[in-house]
Design a binder for these strands. Structure first.
Lengths: 109, 109
DNA sequence: GTAACATATGAACAATTGAACATATGAACG
DNA sequence: CGTTCATATGTTCAATTGTTCATATGTTAC
């Protein structure tokens, strides 16, 4: 810590949300930070899919997909609906699409 | 793998970006998935700051901040500008703000 | 009841990661 | 040149994470 920024920092500090909020933000993005989960969300982009369809699509075990779907559900990013033996997952709201779209723009420019 | 979804999957599969792109997307969000980096980006929301100002603001060692700034820079999320001994960092484009704003909306509803 | 199918969960293990510490680079000044 | 200040980098280590395997739950049909 060297030269003085007390005035500057006072200003910046006042504009920062509280720690808990920033922690929650980081936790949310952590969920986006995995290729498998990104693929799942992308697959659900247009229509709901059942677990075994997703595992077939991504060529991964049902267990792995189910674990990831739980992570996504805990973060309120997907919703599930049971119909007999099968469970259908879909994106829970449009933020998911927006966030992925923004990220996509960033990497393709 | 049980009941049939070949028709459905053909359609979904056609709409998926290639694997490499989805990998890059995950890697991008991984950078957002850490509280320290979120704090740094939020601090740079309005104005550029030098490394020691950030480390003072977040009450963390200069080394830790420098490491995280490198991660952010590698992901093209921040830009740096040297002025004598001090290096000033700023957000490299508006996607950062948009992505954080979208995430913020998601957790506060 | 039980058998078959779809999904969920728990434990274990390899791989990744953020922070701390020590050290190195780079710039300004005497 | 050497010293000081600001920042960067390399290494180590504890903690987190994604997948696999085995097993459990839940649903339908017989």
């Amino acid at each position: 810590m060297a030269h003085d920024h007390s005035n500057l920092l006072k200003h910046v500090k006042a504009d920062m949300p509280k720690d808990e909020t920033l922690q929650d933000l980081g936790d949310l993005f952590k969920v986006f930070g995995d290729t498998t989960r990104i693929k799942i969300m992308y697959a659900l982009h247009e229509e709901e899919l059942c677990v075994c369809a997703i595992s077939e699509l991504l060529n991964m075990t049902q267990s792995a997909i189910s674990h990831q779907l739980k992570t996504l559900k805990d973060a309120n990013l997907v919703a599930s609906r049971r119909e007999g033996k099968t469970v259908y997952y879909s994106l829970s709201d449009d933020h998911v699409k927006s966030i992925i779209a923004e990220g996509y723009e960033h990497i393709t420019e």
